[in-house]
Amino acid sequence: MSQTTEEMKTEKEVVRLKDNKKTKHEEVNLKGTFASVMLLGGFLIITWLAVFILFLVRNG
């Protein structure tokens, strides 16, 4: 049990020290991300509704 604080310091900690508190994510262009997740959302809605309709049809 002889780890020093130095050894325990990880790569990420060092990186984080350099981080700034204030963030400006708004500036990042994430239009493609947004389009991708909306496609994913659309897929969830379509499959869910399809089986829900199947449920209603089978309920007689």
Partner: peptide, 25 residues
């Protein structure tokens, strides 16, 4: 999670000069 993953892909792609909506892929 879905958003975060796509975002890290897109940010990387754009940093390399990707253009368009899905060019980063």
């Amino acid at each position: 999670t879905a958003f975060s993953l796509f975002a890290s892909f897109e940010i990387y792609g754009r940093s390399k000069g990707a253009k368009g909506l899905f060019g980063w892929f």
